[in-house]
């Protein structure tokens, strides 16, 4: 009896217990592994459709839709408003208040060195090309598209390379004079004195607050434009990132064109003969004393 008991325990019960424990452990393990428990074809249609969508173009609902709505309904109108409203305001200013005249016959002050002027004009020509070709792409419909606008895109890329280099030098030569100063706030409050005809000394150093804003937008903003533009050219990022980059490129471009128009008006119309100082390097002493009163001659 004792012998049979031992045999049954050894040959049957103990192995059976081990096997049962192993099976339970295997079932517990299998229950935690999604690959084993999911029967073939059990994934819902919806979940696999979502995975397929992700594999194509990311979350279209988030950035694709935003980009589509902005590009289809806002960007070209935004640029149109900038291109019409700003010149209209300046025309009104020119008629009502008029340009500032300074004595160009008297003593002159050497204001811009030849290196400065060279860097400025390289940046100016490449930036103007960027603005013109950029607007050509935005209003391509009106010009019929095709080879003309495609050529505009090529010029846009080429002049971006030139401007990117010039902007770095511009940043370095003017950084010290362009740092914000307390009197810049006073300049902003009186709008640089452009709303009155009086010739009172305006609080500004070598550059006024308006020029400083333009400087920071053109250099740091230019860097962002170069970064976003580079990826819009190479397309070496995800589709969702491309959409975000295109949105930034358009909004920042609008801001830069707005400031570009302001710069054009100020240098060519609002202050008579201001353009000459960037060609010859000399400014009339009276102009420096009034418009840049904090600048030590």
């Amino acid at each position: 009896m004792n012998y049979y008991y031992k045999v049954i325990m050894k040959r049957i019960l103990i192995p059976a217990c081990i096997a049962a424990t192993g099976m339970v452990a295997a079932m517990v393990y299998a229950g935690t592994d999604p690959v084993i428990v999911t029967p073939i074809g059990a994934g819902t249609g919806t979940s696999s459709f979502i995975q397929m969508n992700d594999a194509f173009t990311g979350d279209w609902q988030q950035y694709g839709q935003t980009f589509t709505n902005l590009q289809a309904g806002l960007f070209d109108q935004l640029f149109l408003v900038i291109l019409t409203l700003i010149p209209a305001v300046f025309l009104l200013h020119y008629i009502l208040i008029g340009a500032k005249h300074f004595d160009h016959e008297g003593e002159d002050v050497y204001f811009f060195s030849s290196t400065t002027r060279l860097i400025h004009w390289v940046a100016a020509v490449s930036f103007s090309l960027l603005v013109v070709t950029g607007l050509m792409i935005i209003f391509g419909k009106l010009l019929g598209g095709g080879t003309l606008i495609m050529g505009g895109r090529i010029v846009h890329i080429a002049s971006a390379l030139v401007f990117a280099v010039a902007a770095v030098f511009m940043f370095l030569i003017w950084l010290k004079d362009m740092l914000p100063m307390p009197y810049d706030i006073a300049w902003l409050f009186i709008m640089g004195g452009y709303l009155s005809k009086k010739k009172k000394p305006i609080p500004a150093g070598k550059f006024n607050a308006g020029q400083k804003m333009w400087f920071w937008l053109a250099t740091v903003g230019g860097l962002v434009m170069a970064y976003t533009g580079w990826y819009l050219y190479t397309f070496q990022v995800t589709t969702d990132q491309l959409r975000i980059l295109a949105i930034i490129h358009n909004f920042l471009g609008a801001a830069m064109i707005a400031m570009f128009l302001v710069h054009l008006y100020m240098s060519m119309f609002a202050i008579k003969g201001a353009l000459t100082s960037m060609i010859t390097g000399y400014k009339p002493r009276e102009e420096v004393e009034i418009l840049h009163s904090r600048y030590k001659i």
Binding site: G64, F67, G140, G146, M150, G152, R153, R243
Partner: peptide, 13 residues
């Protein structure tokens, strides 16, 4: 007419 700007690629789901 196409200028290859790539906007259609960004808009396409």
């Amino acid at each position: 007419t196409c200028i290859g700007c790539g906007y259609c690629f960004m808009a396409c789901p």
